[in-house]
Every structure is written in C-alpha cells, then in structure tokens.
C-alpha cells in the first residue's frame, strides 16, 4: 500500500456487491493478477477495466463489497491499480479481505457526498487525509488491531513474521 498517491475518482452508489465487482463465473478460473484486473467491475461498469489507471480511487456509498466472501473482489481492484476504496461503509467480510490483501479501505462519508467521477484526488493514509483541489476530508485511520497486518503488507506476510519470531 503506497503512502501517498494521486489518482482519479471512479464514483459508484450504495450496496456495490461482490458479484458485480468480480463475477462468480470467473471465481475459480482466473487466478492471474492481470486476468483478474481485466474483469474488475465488469457487470457494473464495463468501461472501468479498460480505462482505470494506477493510483485511481473508487468512491462509493454504503455497504461496499456486500455479498460473497470471494477475496478476488478485493484482489482484482488492487491488481487494477486502485490505491484505495473510499466508502460510507463497508460490508464486513470485504473489509477484512481488503485489509488482509493490503488494499486500503477508508470510511469517509463526507468525501463520498462531494466527490464525483473524474475528480483528481490525493490520499495520505498516515495523516488520515483526502485532498481534492481545495477540499480536504479527514478519516479515522484504521483500528490499531489491524494496523499490524496492513503495515506488514497483508496477512500472509504478517503471519510469516509472527511464526518466525515465535519459533
């Protein structure tokens, strides 16, 4: 997860579910990052995968990532270059999956109200700040209990370190 980056906003609505982020017909077929990225958001916005750029940010309403526990719904966005998802709220399993894969998930309803597709934004994770032009939005940094996982670069790296230090 990068500390600070610029990108463009892709704005979506409430209850964006895992099936439209990454369709079930691919869940046991596509394992390669580039392949997964090329089908990201396919059933919601077919234009997304074609034009998304590294550093772009998804901004969405409440309950982002509801539905299946499929981790590809977080992985495909990360592989597509999305630096963060900013939403009013996240579905529980999606939130966990994103953290475990190192995709930043930020809860910031104020930013969601204002930002539109195409807006240029810059995110400072450490400072808990989203900047778009002259507008600044603050968000609460991730809870301490999960920061260790994020700082390690995801759960696999975190577990590796824990097992090494424990033995």
């Amino acid at each position: 997860m990068s500390k600070e980056k610029k990108g463009k906003v892709w704005k979506y609505g409430d209850d964006i579910n895992t099936d439209v982020i990454f369709p079930g017909r691919y869940t046991y077929k596509l394992m390669e990052p580039a392949e997964m990225a090329s089908h990201a958001m396919e059933d919601l916005d077919p234009a997304f995968a074609k034009s998304v750029q590294p550093g772009d940010v998804i901004v969405a309403g409440k309950n982002f990532g509801c539905g299946s526990s499929r981790e590809q719904a977080a992985a495909c966005l990360k592989h597509a270059g999305i630096q963060a998802v900013v939403a009013k709220s996240f579905a529980r399993i999606y939130f966990r999956n994103a953290i475990n894969l190192g995709l930043a998930v930020l809860q910031c309803p104020e930013a969601v109200e204002v930002l539109k597709t195409g807006d240029e934004i810059e995110i400072d994770l450490a400072a808990g700040k989203i900047v778009s032009g002259s507008r600044v939005f603050n968000f609460f940094p991730l809870p301490e209990s999960v920061l260790g996982i994020v700082e390690a670069g995801g759960l696999i790296e975190y577990t590796k370190k824990k097992l090494t230090s424990g033995s």
């Binding site: 526990s69 475990n100 759960l155 696999i156 577990t159 824990k162 097992l163």
Partner: peptide, 18 residues
C-alpha cells in the same frame, strides 16, 4: 462467521484468527 481465503490460510498455519 464467514471469512476470506487469506484468513483461512492463516488459520491453517496458526490455528488463530482475530
């Protein structure tokens, strides 16, 4: 409760989850 696959892998290795 439902979890993700990376978490499942971690449980297989450590027998723990938060």
């Amino acid at each position: 409760a439902g979890i993700g696959r990376t978490e499942a892998a971690s449980i297989w290795a450590t027998d723990e989850i938060w």
